[in-house]
Amino acid sequence: MVKNYKTDLLIAVFVLFLAALCFLIGILCNKSNSDTVEIYVDNALWGTYPFGEAQLIKIDKAGKHICTVCINEEGVYMLESCCKNQICVSSGLLTREKARSSDIASWIVCLPNAVTVHLALGDMQ
């Protein structure tokens, strides 16, 4: 019985080690020079927008409107999306403070529409 738990624990430690490795690689990869909002659609950069300048970015794919990203003085958020789960909309406002707190907090992801919004902070370097 004890032997069983030892092997289970080894599996858990292996998974946690991989998580730590990915965390380090993620930090090294996500660096930028100024505060910008990067929007990716289908794995390609859709556009880069200055953070803090109020604007609405409507995203269309194959002639169909899929979502709207809103940037204001406080932050950036997914205003609306045609996806079923609405996880991206419920992610809420992405602020400088949030993005500074952790790397994962600097992203809004809409998996069904393959849209990602990233708040890249220049002072993170």
Partner: peptide, 27 residues
Amino acid sequence: VALFFITYKAVLSYLPFLLISSCITGA
């Protein structure tokens, strides 16, 4: 699969937290 649709940077940011959660939820 996500790597085919969204940028790898976003996947890399989420992966550590998803892996830790998989450990807990799996247990």
